[in-house]
Amino acid sequence: MPKSIVVPEGTSKPIAPFSPGTLADGVVYVSGTLPFDRNNDVVHVGDAAAQTRHVLETIKTVIETAGGSMEDVTMNHIFLTDWANYAAVNSVYAEYFPGDKPARYCILCGLVKPEALIEIATVAHIGRP
């Protein structure tokens, strides 16, 4: 099956060997997205809500670059470093998914940079190109 790599304009070079997104057979797979700026530094240190918003905006950009929208999201994989941030994350998350909610899971783990409080990977079904 043919696939295409999705790299929004202005995307910085990833810190590991991956692409921001991959489109295959009408499905966009968005890599684990951390609250990084263009230099791969963590933004909004200590603020889980602001980091969540930054991550979801980045994901939105990948999906829109592939031709979809946040309404096309069918699954989110959420990684948190502290359950104390769960309510703040959910508050921002609900803004991005106001209607029917995509499936998701949320786990507690360590992330690649200690200042990062959240990472989200996403799947969106945008239809066939």
Results as ranks from 00 to 15, higher is better:
27 V>L: 07
54 H>P: 02
81 T>A: 12
110 G>L: 13
100 D>V: 11
122 T>C: 12
104 R>W: 11
61 T>H: 13
62 V>G: 10
49 A>C: 12
87 A>M: 04
106 C>N: 13
72 D>S: 14
61 T>K: 15
113 K>S: 06
97 F>D: 07
75 M>I: 05
119 E>G: 13
62 V>P: 11
53 R>P: 01
107 I>S: 10
16 A>K: 01
42 V>A: 11
118 I>F: 04
119 E>N: 15
90 N>R: 07
80 L>M: 12
82 D>W: 13
68 G>N: 03
72 D>F: 08
66 A>I: 05
115 E>H: 11
39 N>C: 04
21 G>Y: 05
34 L>M: 14
43 V>E: 10
112 V>L: 15
125 H>G: 00
101 K>E: 06
51 Q>W: 08
70 M>H: 06
99 G>V: 02
49 A>E: 15
101 K>T: 04
126 I>E: 02
43 V>W: 03
102 P>W: 02
57 E>M: 14
95 E>L: 06
67 G>Y: 09
96 Y>M: 11
98 P>Y: 01
63 I>N: 05
82 D>T: 09
51 Q>D: 12
95 E>W: 02
116 A>S: 15
66 A>H: 02
98 P>S: 02
34 L>Y: 12
87 A>C: 00
25 D>K: 13
86 Y>S: 07
45 V>N: 05
125 H>F: 03
21 G>T: 08
31 S>M: 13
116 A>G: 08
115 E>L: 05
83 W>D: 13
70 M>P: 13
105 Y>E: 13
114 P>E: 14
115 E>Q: 15
107 I>G: 02
74 T>M: 03
14 P>S: 12
69 S>P: 10
117 L>D: 09
105 Y>M: 01
48 A>K: 08
101 K>G: 00
12 S>M: 04
32 G>Q: 14
92 V>P: 01
19 S>D: 12
41 D>Q: 14
40 N>F: 02
77 H>L: 13
51 Q>Y: 09
58 T>M: 10
36 F>P: 07
55 V>S: 05
78 I>P: 01
40 N>P: 04
14 P>M: 09
41 D>W: 02
109 C>G: 06
114 P>Q: 10
60 K>W: 01
46 G>S: 08
53 R>S: 04
28 V>T: 00
100 D>M: 03
72 D>P: 12
62 V>F: 09
85 N>K: 13
51 Q>L: 07
29 Y>A: 07
18 F>T: 07
82 D>K: 15
113 K>T: 10
66 A>Y: 06
42 V>D: 08
65 T>C: 11
83 W>R: 15
19 S>G: 03
20 P>F: 01
98 P>H: 00
73 V>W: 02
